[in-house]
Write a protein that binds this DNA or RNA. Structure first.
Lengths: 202, 202
DNA sequence: GAGCTTAACTAGACAATGTCTAGATCCATA
DNA sequence: TATGGATCTAGACATTGTCTAGTTAAGCTC
């Protein structure tokens, strides 16, 4: 077993991986700087050379999450026509498969709101959702989209995000129990979207 | 100026009020047990006689939030017919007026999920929403509500919650800027709900 | 290669935090 | 008035994020 070299070589990535593992296995509150450093096998001061502080590290992890979400949404977009509501379903399944990471992505108090990589990754996700769920790419007549168009887009986004947040917090469990037996979260999401007449947009 | 008596007399309530003030003025991360004790003018050990630990105190504060939300939702329900979408609007305006408290109410990692008062207060809020937004009180034909009915209710709830969460995180600002000038969050919420064919339910 | 610069890392310190314990205070009831 | 018990203080402890000083070694220049 090779002993650890003084210089790690790829500590930045190792820290992000260790943090994600910790997050997945022990939850949000296990994400301390020192625990992450321990998991990566370095001293508690080492992370400072790669991240100014804890919020910087967590922001970078959240950015990774947003990038992964974008990838999955983009892939889902390709299935348009074959599957109903591909984007909302992809959004939900990303969150279900990465519960704690998804939660972190929306814990503003633990992130550095100014970090460019986070801003960019999040903006990319929002841009993808916006153009897929609503605002048409081929220009709007004059002075931006109408309130009606924005409303439809906002509805699709809000419903999807709200459903997902409630689902990962376990708040939908009673509804699923009340539903015809065997109804999974995705089916309830489909039913919710189906009730809104937003069909063409998602 | 009367000097502080050894026995506070109503420390439990004082702690909750101090915590809410701190929360409102300095945000979620200022909510430490010692800071709350300082704000209430007692030693850092005093809270232990009223709350087992920090998460118990925060859970009680969250419960207060849910009870207040219930009151406001109940009041809004009385305006049915006069105002469109009274419950979603009340939900949004509660969150806008109590941003940090609303956030705390959904920070599972800082709460004690088993605390009865929190469970009850939250259940009351959900019950009020459920019966107002969807599932009819006058019984369902057989074996619970249909998936279609549940879907409509879930849609209204998810949309409202999702919109609210996105709004207090500032995520809707770009949409509001794109909207006809002067559009406020509530108007966008109304537009979103208006786009969904859920009119009769909210 | 030798020497030097500098990034990467360790180790120790510090204030702050949550929780525990021992002891001080004082209210209520007998 | 005594005494039991709830309320509160003060100090301790391990843990946390961040800082600083010093150590290691990788990479560049000559």
């Amino acid at each position: 077993m090779a002993k650890a070299p003084y210089h790690h070589g790829a500590l930045r990535e190792a820290l992000l991986e260790a943090a994600e593992k910790l997050l997945r296995e022990e939850g949000l509150s296990a994400l301390t700087l020192r625990a992450i450093a321990r998991a990566a096998g370095v001293s508690h001061g080492a992370p400072a050379h790669h991240f100014e502080d804890l919020s910087a590290l967590l922001s970078e992890l959240a950015a990774v999450g947003f990038r992964r979400l974008v990838d999955q949404l983009a892939a889902a977009r390709e299935t348009r026509g074959k599957v109903s509501f591909p984007l909302p379903k992809a959004y939900l399944s990303f969150a279900m498969a990465n519960r704690e990471l998804f939660a972190l992505m929306f814990r503003e108090e633990r992130l550095d709101a100014r970090r460019p990589s986070l801003l960019e990754a999040r903006a990319a996700a929002i841009a993808l959702l916006s153009q897929s769920l609503g605002v048409k790419a081929h220009g709007t007549p004059a002075g931006g989209p109408s309130l009606k168009e924005l409303g439809a887009m906002t509805a699709a986004w809000s419903l999807t995000h709200g459903f997902t947040v409630l689902a990962i917090d376990g708040r939908l469990a009673p509804l699923l129990r009340a539903a015809p037996s065997g109804t999974a979260a995705e089916a309830l999401l489909e039913a919710a979207l189906g009730a809104t007449a937003l069909v063409g947009r998602t």
